[in-house]
Amino acid sequence: MLLGFDPMSLLTPDLGLVFWTTIIFLVFWLLVGKFAFKPIAKAIKDRDQNIADALTAAEKAKAEVQQMHSDNASLLKEAREESAKILKEAKELKDSIVAEAHHSAKEEAAKIVANAKIEIDAQKKAAMAEVKNEVSKLSLEIAQKVVGRELDSTKDQQNFITSLVDKLN
């Protein structure tokens, strides 16, 4: 069989091809590797870093907003509680003031009434005593006029009439 090729040539490195492959690959490595792949890899890495940072920052901001939100809510709740408390206290104060006033007015009134009663009683007693005195005096005079001079011993008569008047009560 006369074939126009040498089968071993397939497995034999060719000087010229080795030479050119080396040059082309090394130039490719130095040129594209250094001036294209390196910056590309760096750009991809930087961008990945940026994205990761941005995501972290966003997460943080979200958490902050959440925090602020809950802070606001608690603040609002506190304020509400405070106002409710103040209102309650004010109401209590008002009630107590009113109750106090009521109480003291009542006491005052009672005192005035009591005082008035005492005064009235005293006046009444005095008036009674005076009336009694007046009556006994009048009775004595009337009796003197009725009985005339027969009654000498005035002193005894006086006592007698006084006792009578006392009985009248």
Binding site: L15, L17, W20, T21, I24, F28, L31
Partner: peptide, 21 residues
Amino acid sequence: FYDLSITKNVFNMLLGFIILS
């Protein structure tokens, strides 16, 4: 002789090199 020619394989490599660059 030594053959340092731009053979068809070298041609292919150069083409690839240019395209990739």
